[in-house]
Design a protein around this nucleic acid. Structure first.
Lengths: 259, 259
DNA sequence: TAGTGGTCTAGACCACGTT
DNA sequence: ACGTGGTCTAGACCACTAA
């Protein structure tokens, strides 16, 4: 076990220095899964720091998933969780030329009277006033996402189109509904583009797309907004990395595969 | 501020009792985003517990995203993060009748000599030996996922088909490659079923599907396994919930929407 | 019985924000 | 100047594990 070098006079907290030390050992492979770390007392004595400080380091390593503790036995290096997958919306799509900034364009925005199936989605009576928006998100000239949003319109706030840039459904809902959004549910499906969607996204009819519904609930689990998003299957991918030490992996990106 | 009731003699740690107390206040809406919590000293004195114990409670609330601290000011209830979306593979598909257990069926499993494009995917020479598997995952009689896996076959472990049940690519890789899997990269795309895929998944040709590639890397970022999975778009959905107090929401499930 | 991690205490000094 | 959270100490007692 390499002795960590701590600078007690540094403005960097001891627990952070020690955390980085072990993070380095684990990421570099000097400590492999199953290895036991020194006991808390060994740490405390050999480094001349309090056991509570040692425990803080270990608890942060454990929170990061890199170690686990067993009462009465010791602290051990954990296995990386390779089968935990999380595809995130906010993640950047990875492909050449997609690092241009995303821009949001408002195609349509007005007050409508809810009819089927929107009245069912929002769980309101037919004819109730709703805010209706159609939005397309582009990167450069490539259309990526086509969103259609419906929000219960109780607040009667003015429609300020400039403020709809980069808008998410939750933000629109919080501006135009009396009740604040508290919970969300999103469902992602595989689909193919309808004609109108294909036209907006600049793809062929029936081209593969991601289709996502969003439902926004308030504190009382009442629906205050509903929306659907169509993601351009030609240019949109969800990426998920697993394990530790991912930086190098992300740098060495290869061209993407098609079917 | 309601005074929490703590049982110091209980076998339940004080920090956990206090955590549950505040979790309840926040989930029920008695504490709303922006509200300031009592200061650490107030806690410590009024409840007769150490400030370090109070700090542990707050740090766990902060880790759960329910509060945030500002140095020199205080601790405040946080806004729920409604726009953070994470679609997880391991999540149950939600739909009626899908709560039957998933079963895995091995369609094919043998050693092959790598040709294009697999040799490129695995970054090996043509002709190198690989383990090749085709697997279908079903729930009841409904086929959900069709997986095709390629693993570098250096370990020469025997092919035990029984052990391939419920297998993930990382597990197969760890059994048949000398180097242990350390990192993964997964890419999710929208696609439509080819004829062979449609046959396995019991859907029409060109029916919408999710298409996912998996690449498994070892400690040195060398590829040790590659695979593709086709998810039946008719029956597979990714679901993501956001915000707090989601239990009630998940109970009140509605029928799913189509395009 | 000895050693481990888990909980908890009663202090200390500091950096930061407000008044 | 004062109060806040952030860091750190030097102990204590406990429950659990292993020899």
């Amino acid at each position: 076990m390499k002795q960590p070098k701590l600078d007690k006079g540094s403005f960097i907290p001891i627990y952070h220095q020690l955390f980085k030390h072990f993070e380095g050992l684990i990421l570099s492979g000097e400590l492999v899964p199953g290895d036991m770390l020194p006991t808390e007392m060994e740490f405390s004595e050999q480094l001349g720091i309090s056991r509570m400080t040692v425990r803080r380091v270990i608890s942060e390593l454990a929170a990061a998933g890199m170690v686990y503790t067993v009462k009465g036995k010791g602290t051990f290096v954990a296995e990386p969780k390779l089968d935990e997958v999380a595809f995130s919306l906010n993640q950047r799509i990875e492909d050449l030329g997609y690092d241009r900034p995303m821009s949001t364009h408002l195609l349509e925005c007005r007050i409508i009277k809810a009819e089927e199936p929107i009245s069912t989605r929002l769980r309101i009576d037919k004819g109730t006033h709703c805010l209706f928006c159609r939005i397309v998100t582009r990167t450069g000239r490539i259309p990526l996402i086509y969103k259609t949003y419906y929000t219960i319109y109780t607040k009667k706030a003015p429609l300020i189109e400039n403020q709809l840039r980069d808008m998410t459904l939750t933000r629109i809902a919080s501006q135009h509904s009396e009740n604040l959004p508290s919970r969300t549910k999103r469902i992602l499906m595989a689909s193919s583009a309808r004609k109108d969607e294909a036209a907006v996204l600049d793809i062929e009819h029936n081209y593969p797309v991601f289709f996502m519904t969003e439902t926004i609930y308030d504190q009382d689990n009442k629906v205050i907004a509903w929306g659907k998003s169509v993601f351009n299957g030609k240019h949109y991918r969800f990426v998920s990395y697993g394990g530790w030490n991912l930086d190098e992996l992300k740098k060495s990106e290869e061209g993407l595969s098609d079917v």
